[in-house]
Amino acid sequence: MYDDVIELIERARVAFPPFGNGVSQAAIDNAEATLGFELPHSYKWWLRNYGGGQIQGDIVYGLDEEGIGKPDIVELATMNNSSGLYGQKRLVFCMGNAENFVFNTETLDDGGEYEVLLHDITAGEEIRFAVSFTEFLQRRITEVM
Rank of each mutant, 00 (worst) to 15 (best):
M1W: 08
D4T: 10
D4N: 14
V5Y: 10
V5Q: 07
I6C: 06
E7G: 08
E7Q: 14
I9G: 04
E10D: 12
R11N: 13
A12S: 15
R13A: 09
P17I: 00
G20M: 07
N21M: 08
N21H: 11
V23H: 03
S24W: 03
Q25E: 15
Q25R: 15
A26D: 14
A27R: 02
A27F: 04
N30V: 06
N30F: 01
A33P: 00
T34L: 13
T34M: 11
G36L: 15
F37D: 09
F37C: 07
F37G: 06
P40C: 12
P40A: 12
S42R: 14
Y43S: 07
K44R: 15
W45V: 12
W46A: 10
W46D: 06
N49S: 08
Y50D: 06
G51I: 04
G51M: 03
Q54Y: 15
I55T: 05
I55V: 15
I55R: 05
D58N: 10
D58A: 11
V60L: 15
V60K: 04
Y61Q: 04
L63H: 01
D64L: 01
E65Y: 00
E65A: 00
E66T: 00
K70D: 06
K70G: 01
P71F: 05
V74F: 00
V74S: 00
E75W: 03
E75I: 01
T78H: 04
T78L: 03
M79Y: 09
N81M: 11
N81H: 12
S82A: 10
S83L: 12
S83D: 11
S83I: 08
L85E: 12
L85A: 08
L85N: 15
Y86T: 03
Y86W: 09
Y86S: 06
G87W: 04
G87T: 05
Q88T: 13
K89G: 03
R90L: 08
L91Y: 02
V92P: 01
V92Y: 01
M95Y: 01
M95Q: 13
G96H: 09
N97R: 13
N97Y: 07
N97A: 12
E99T: 11
N100A: 13
F103S: 09
N104S: 14
T105R: 15
T105D: 10
E106A: 14
E106T: 15
T107K: 10
T107Y: 12
T107Q: 12
T107L: 10
D109M: 12
D110Q: 13
G111W: 11
G111K: 14
G111A: 12
E113N: 11
E113S: 09
E113I: 05
H119Y: 03
H119R: 00
I121E: 08
A123R: 15
G124L: 12
E126T: 03
E126G: 00
F129C: 03
A130M: 08
S132R: 06
T134N: 11
E135N: 03
F136H: 05
R139K: 15
I141V: 14
I141Q: 09
M145E: 13
